[in-house]
Nucleic acid binder design. Structure first.
Lengths: 245, 245
DNA sequence: AAAAACATGTTGTCAGACAACCTGTTCTTG
DNA sequence: CAAGAACAGGTTGTCTGACAACATGTTTTT
């Protein structure tokens, strides 16, 4: 969020590529639950890589819960309800409809966080929220790209502060994860969208959220947050409709 | 859900052990964001295992987003806000308060799913929901452990059917994941709790959810689901208070 | 002084070997 | 003949050593 010029274009490693191919085969149904994977030797031959590479790939998928392996027998695709992690793939930001699903998820979790925050917020949470809120109110109107970028990050921090104030670590973690993925895939769209929006509208929506959490009004916090996110989603999707995404 | 006698006591593999140790060091703060991990050679020496084992462990943590590595330089702990997966560890079911957090998360996501389900349900979704609902209504009252077990699984399937009917794959996946973890860690408590509860109460709550989704009433579905889950949580926590968890 | 070459350390990949384990087959033994 | 033991083959788990690819700091050359 703070550092700039990061994360661009790291070269893909072989294990990652293979893990993705296997993962796709599983998700696409080419490999069904209970199926036995080809042996590591066959896979390494088929992909033309060393067995260690295949093993690292399988190790990742085991960690994710997609695969279980038994020594001396083989590796098997597990039932989908044995997955032990939740992740959002990069492919989920391609189409407008898929993007909408991710935003629905974020909306749901942040609304619930806001409701909990109204009940559980500590004084540190409150001062953090207030500080970010003031910063948003006092920020210059988005004219340049850079200014808008800073505003966006402040708003994102405000969201995360709500998640933290909920007192529920799981909400913080999942919201943070989704925020990260959204930022990775949609940052430029979000910024352009923000530049084309009436910022005072957003300010008033966020003020309402802040106000309700401040007053420890759980249900109102939930509704204000949901309302804000649903509007934000509409704005973003309208924008995403026109262009790159 | 259907198969019995599973999942007990598989021997831990070395990479998993090492991944967990490193993961703990990161979560406990012994390794902070930006820190450089010891080299693979030093780690393999320190743990007394081969470098391939260390590499598999690191590969898992990279996959999780906890670590980034640069060829020729080293491996580094990433900021917590770069994690690309969401997972709930087994430690989150130990204490009553931690369990409550997991249940809050499930409540939030299932409520949102129900609201979406009321809008997006297909006819297949409806028949699946109706069938499960009828099955719950007609189920014998929980007397024996086995009967209660079957009822619990039917109710769980009903929840998952709601998630599926939302039409949002992410809700289905995260709800399924949480359900799996809850079932792994709390199944026996949940069954005993169900045996000690007035099942007609639960039946009427679920009927209300079913009814509202059937009538495509989004907000009522949301509220009915939240209400049901909050009551369920209370019942379960009261029970968990007394005993094993 | 700047650029090129080199040295060193680290991760990424490769190849081969053996250990641990599972399964089915064959052999032994009662 | 049947039950158990021994064996054989295949697969995953671990180990070892080597080299390639890359980054960084040092030395040498121009």
């Amino acid at each position: 969020m703070s550092q700039i010029y990061e994360k661009i274009a790291r070269p893909r490693r072989l294990p990652d590529e293979i893990a993705e191919k296997l993962s796709n085969d599983i998700n696409s149904g080419a490999l069904k639950a209970g199926d036995k994977l080809p042996t590591e030797q066959k896979l390494s031959l088929a992909f033309g890589v060393a067995r260690t590479v295949v093993r690292e790939a399988i190790s990742q998928l085991k960690f994710e819960g997609l695969i279980q392996s038994k020594q001396g027998v083989g590796a098997f695709v597990t039932n989908p309800d044995q997955k032990s992690v939740f992740r959002i793939g990069s492919s989920c930001f391609k189409k407008r409809k898929e993007l909408a699903m991710v935003l629905q998820l974020q909306t749901s979790n942040l609304s619930a966080s806001a409701a909990l925050a109204a009940e559980n917020r500590t004084s540190e949470d409150l001062s953090a929220l207030t500080e970010l809120h003031e910063s948003i109110l006092n920020s210059p109107d988005p004219s340049s790209y850079e200014i808008t970028e800073a505003l966006l990050d402040t708003i994102r921090s405000f969201y995360l502060a709500i998640a933290k104030a909920s007192g529920n670590i799981h909400f913080l973690e999942i919201i943070r994860m989704i925020d990260t993925r959204l930022n990775e895939n949609l940052r430029s769209v979000a910024i352009k969208n923000l530049m084309a929006t009436d910022v005072n509208l957003i300010r008033s929506e966020l003020t309402s959220i802040h106000e309700q959490i401040l007053q420890a009004n759980s249900e109102s916090s939930r509704l204000a947050t949901r309302s804000h996110f649903e509007k934000s989603t509409e704005r973003l999707l309208a924008r995403a409709d026109e262009r790159d995404v």
